[in-house]
Amino acid sequence: MRGPNIVVCVKQVPDSAQIRVHPVTGTIMRQGVPAVLNPYDLFALEEALQIKDRLGGRIVALCMGPPQAEAALRKALSLGVDDAVLVSDRAFAGSDTLATSFALASAIRQVGQEQPVDLVFTGKQTIDGDTGQVGPGVAKRLGMQLLSYVCRIPILDMDSQSIVVHRWTEKGVQVLKSKLPCLITVLEGTSEGRFASLPEMIRAARQPIRVWNRQAAGIEDLSKIGLKGSPTVVGKVFAPSRRAERAECIEWEQDQAEKAVSLLWEKIRARQPELVEKLSGDNGGENGQERVSE
C-alpha cells in the first residue's frame, strides 16, 4: 500500500498584529511588518504530517505569492514536508479568492502529474484575507470532495480510499465519510505543532524550493488569474469611524464608589427598563450569596 500524496496550501501573510493604521490619514503603514506563515496553515501542516507519520507517503507544500514567500515554505520544509513549490508570477498580482483558487488548483494538477494527489489540506482561513474561501474554491475547481472545518480525522484508509472526518459546526460535530481525493480545511487548535529536529532543520535550509511561473503551473488562460480573473473589486478602504460622542463618564470621589455605581445602575435602568423589569422577579433569592472579592 502506498502512502498518500498530500498537498498542503500555505500562505505567507503579514503579521496583522503588527499592522498599523496611520492615525491621521487612515492608510496602512506596512513598514517593518514581518511576514509569517499563516498561523491557521500550521494546523493544516500538522494534520498532514501526522498522517505521514502514520501512513508514510509524501507531502508537498504549495504557496502562491511573491518570491519572499519562500520563507513560509522553508518553515514548512523544516517541519517535515518533503517538497515545496512556490507559484510566483507577476500575472497573479491582484488575484482575489476566485483567481487564487484557480491558480492553486492548476498548480495542484501539475503536482498530480508527478503522482496523483490524494489529499489537499488548507487552513481554515488566512489572517489577511480572512475569507476561508480559497480552500473550498480549490476543491470545486479540482472536483474534489470538500470537507471543511475539520477538527479530527479518525479514519484514513488508503486501500479503500476512504476517509472519515469530524466536521465542526456551531451546534455540534458532523461525522462525515468520504472518498479520496478530497480537500480538507483544518480547524485551528486541532493539535500541537511540532518542533523539527536539527537534521531536519538543516535539510530544510538546504533544500531548493521549486519556483513555478504561470506556465509551469499549467496556466494558459490569463483571463482566469490576476485582476482579470477576479470578480471582486476593492472600492474603498477606510478606517472604522469612531462614534462621535465619547461615553458619558460618571465622576466620583475616592471613597464614593457605591454612589457612583448606584448612579450608573440608575442610568442603565433608565435606558433599558424592560431588561431590568425582567430581572427584578427572579433575583430575590440570590441575595447574600455573593463571595467577597479580595
Binding site: 496583522s16 493604521v21 496602512i28 476593492v234 472600492g235 478602504v237 477606510f238 478606517a239 472604522p240
Partner: peptide
C-alpha cells in the same frame, strides 16, 4: 480587513 484595522468596501 488587515486584522480589523481597516474596513474595505468590495
Amino acid at each position: 480587513t488587515f486584522g480589523g484595522n481597516l474596513l474595505c468596501t468590495i
